[in-house]
Amino acid sequence: MSLLFVRHGQASAGTDDYDVLSERGFAQSRRLGQWLAATGHEFDEVVMGGMRRHRQTFESIASSYAEQGKALPAARIERGFDEFDHHAVFDGFMRGNADHPAVVGSHAGGLMALGALIHAALGAWAEDRIAGVPESWSDFGARVRDAGERLAGGRERKVLVLTSGGVISRLAQHAMGLNDRGAIDLNLSLRNSGLCEFHLRPYGMALGSWNALPHLHDDRGLWTYY
């Protein structure tokens, strides 16, 4: 079995509605579809999380297939591949840690400051140090792991999965036996529209490749993380 996971295209951070692709996110997704179709990638099944950015990524990929006279299977929604509530995690961390260097530094803006804030917030969440988060770190990991095991069950097939960075990093954590810090580092490394391969082994899911961007090799301006 081959499972190709795609992190959604760039969403709309800093706007009133994060859960919609940015113009750059649509471009990333269309180019991914063009590359997948042109290089002969065919799938027996398409699965996606239930968020709008997941659906828009799929629709952009599917439109690129159609432009080349090809088609993807209809996508089914698997809510186990929904991303965690990042607003609850990050806002909760900032409210409870106003004097934390990562929170203070975030007010200045910039990519490095945002990365430091995300890293600190995820670390606190993993240690159950944020109040009011509707889903614990451990519950999120169990939800994602269960969804991955359901997907891996049954007959051999090639599956395309559209989801988010937190989901993919927790699957990789489970597959590789990493600690929570390793999962957080993997999460922060994932680029928008990046490709990650998993394969089914007798002992469970195994990671095949991580964070590839063959469809964006010629345009570094389309490499984004947030």
Score class of each variant (00 low, 15 high):
2 S>K: 14
3 L>R: 07
4 L>A: 08
5 F>R: 10
6 V>I: 15
7 R>H: 06
8 H>K: 12
8 H>R: 13
10 Q>K: 15
12 S>K: 04
13 A>V: 09
15 T>H: 12
16 D>P: 13
17 D>Q: 05
20 V>M: 08
22 S>D: 04
28 Q>R: 07
29 S>N: 10
30 R>C: 00
31 R>C: 00
33 G>I: 09
39 T>W: 08
46 V>L: 10
47 V>Q: 14
49 G>H: 10
50 G>A: 14
55 R>Y: 07
61 I>C: 03
61 I>W: 01
63 S>K: 14
64 S>V: 02
67 E>T: 11
69 G>R: 14
72 L>G: 06
74 A>T: 07
75 A>G: 04
77 I>T: 15
77 I>L: 00
78 E>R: 15
78 E>G: 07
80 G>T: 11
81 F>G: 03
81 F>D: 01
85 D>G: 09
85 D>K: 14
86 H>R: 13
87 H>T: 06
90 F>G: 04
91 D>K: 12
91 D>R: 13
91 D>L: 05
94 M>L: 01
96 G>L: 07
97 N>F: 06
100 H>G: 04
102 A>Y: 05
103 V>A: 03
105 G>E: 01
107 H>T: 13
111 L>H: 08
112 M>H: 12
116 A>N: 11
118 I>H: 11
119 H>N: 12
121 A>R: 06
122 L>I: 03
127 E>L: 15
127 E>S: 08
129 R>T: 00
129 R>Y: 00
130 I>C: 06
130 I>R: 05
133 V>G: 06
138 S>D: 10
139 D>S: 11
141 G>D: 00
144 V>D: 01
149 E>I: 09
156 E>S: 14
159 V>D: 02
160 L>K: 09
160 L>P: 00
171 L>G: 10
172 A>V: 11
174 H>I: 02
174 H>N: 12
174 H>L: 01
179 N>Y: 07
181 R>T: 14
181 R>Y: 10
182 G>A: 09
184 I>T: 07
186 L>I: 09
187 N>H: 13
190 L>F: 10
193 S>E: 00
194 G>S: 15
196 C>I: 15
199 H>V: 13
201 R>F: 05
202 P>F: 12
206 A>P: 03
212 A>Y: 00
213 L>Q: 12
215 H>T: 08
216 L>G: 05
218 D>E: 14
222 L>M: 12
222 L>F: 06
222 L>T: 09
223 W>M: 10
224 T>S: 13
226 Y>Q: 05
